[in-house]
Amino acid sequence: MEVRTIKVFTTVDNINLHTQVVDMSMTYGQQFGPTYLDGADVTKIKPHNSHEGKTFYVLPNDDTLRVEAFEYYHTTDPSFLGRYMSALNHTKKWKYPQVNGLTSIKWADNNCYLATALLTLQQIELKFNPPALQDAYYRARAGEAANFCALILAYCNKTVGELGDVRETMSYLFQHANLDSCKRVLNVVCKTCGQQQTTLKGVEAVMYMGTLSYEQFKKGVQIPCTCGKQATKYLVQQESPFVMMSAPPAQYELKHGTFTCASEYTGNYQCGHYKHITSKETLYCIDGALLTKSSEYKGPITDVFYKENSYTTTIK
């Protein structure tokens, strides 16, 4: 009895394709271990004539594949690729409408935090270190965002349907971005203890939790000093293409032309909904596939993004 075979390709990165001759009487799992086709788990399936010449994702289970996976995804987590594939199996079914010149995501599976993050990423200057993220990001900007969303979920250790947080998501993504040249110098002034300067680099240099107003941050924000008295913390120097200011959701007025974009969060910790506000020729609110415009805006804002380049204080 002759062994019926077909020729397929296996890959971990969709760049390096490895030619395989597979036995049609055995499952993919018996031949390769966990195997995925377009995100779908085909591990328990036997090869079919229609699979001839198709590319299958496999887990990096030998040295060659491990090197290829690390170079593309910059992670050695053995569960990463499987999590990416199972997320992709959902995100490829989502709709990605162009809204006001940006790629958004039609609401499904509690994905409003991903839509808000995706919209924000198209408006701030950011370059990702893992080629996987950078490639998928370019495709997302062009309207094909399924891979990018699935990668975000995998890097953030999230599953489809789980509630997510924009600030946490951005923080994970910033860790995989090139923020080497970003720098922030802060000064804390206390009447009792004097003053202390701190220099922050990388992710810490672009994120701040405690106030939404970048102007206020430049002037000074009140913080408790270690001595128990009130101290003032203010920005001395900022070198970065953008800054992200966050605070627990509270009524906040966004003035046209003073910011790049913002995240609105309605609801409580267990259950809520994100919308995205962007400042173009007027203010726009993007909620999944829905767009509304207004000249002014007041609502429960939790993150505001500002364009920056270089700032030095005039406070002496």
Score class of each variant (00 low, 15 high):
Ala205Lys: 03
Leu212Glu: 00
Leu163Glu: 11
Lys95Asp: 15
Val12Gly: 07
Val8Met: 15
Val304Arg: 00
Val42Cys: 13
Arg83Lys: 14
Leu119Lys: 03
Ile6Cys: 09
Lys46Gln: 13
Thr313Val: 13
Cys271Ile: 10
Lys275Phe: 00
His256Met: 10
Glu281Val: 04
Leu121Thr: 11
Cys156Lys: 04
Gln134Leu: 06
Pro97Val: 15
Ile286Glu: 00
His176Ile: 06
Glu168Pro: 04
Leu126Glu: 04
Ala177Lys: 05
Gly288Trp: 01
Met209Ala: 15
Thr27Ile: 11
Pro241Arg: 06
Glu125Cys: 06
Lys7His: 12
Tyr265Ala: 01
Cys193Lys: 01
Cys182Tyr: 08
Ala69Phe: 10
Thr159Trp: 10
Thr35Phe: 11
Gln237Arg: 12
Gln175His: 14
Val12Trp: 06
Ala289Glu: 12
Gly194Asp: 01
Thr199Asp: 05
Gln197Ile: 09
Thr192Gly: 13
Ser240Thr: 05
Tyr155Gln: 05
Cys225Ser: 01
Tyr297Phe: 07
Tyr284Lys: 03
Gln230Ile: 15
Phe305Tyr: 06
Val22Asp: 05
Phe70Lys: 08
Asn178Ile: 01
Thr211Phe: 07
Ile277Thr: 04
Phe70Thr: 09
Lys255Asn: 07
Ala140His: 04
Tyr284Ile: 15
Ala142Asp: 14
Ile277Ala: 00
Tyr269Ala: 15
Cys112Val: 00
Lys255Trp: 06
Arg141Gln: 10
Arg184Thr: 05
Lys93Met: 07
Asn110Trp: 04
Val99Pro: 00
Glu162Tyr: 03
Thr43Met: 12
Cys285Leu: 12
Met170Val: 06
Val160Glu: 00
Gly288Met: 00
Phe70Val: 12
Gln134Met: 09
Gly267Arg: 06
Ser104Glu: 03
Gln230Asn: 11
Gln196Lys: 14
Lys307Ser: 12
Phe259Asp: 02
Gln196Ser: 14
Leu235Ala: 02
Lys46Ile: 13
His273Val: 00
Asn14Trp: 08
Thr292Ala: 13
Pro97Tyr: 06
Leu212Ser: 03
Ala250Asp: 09
Thr159His: 15
Cys261Gln: 01
Asn16His: 08
Ser213Trp: 00
His18Phe: 06
Thr260Met: 15
Leu212Arg: 03
Ala250Ile: 10
Asp303Lys: 01
Leu119Asn: 02
Ala177Phe: 02
Gly202Val: 02
Cys149Asn: 00
Thr27Glu: 10
Thr10Pro: 07
Ser295Lys: 15
Glu68Val: 05
Ala87Trp: 04
Thr5Trp: 10
Ser294Ala: 12
His276Asp: 00
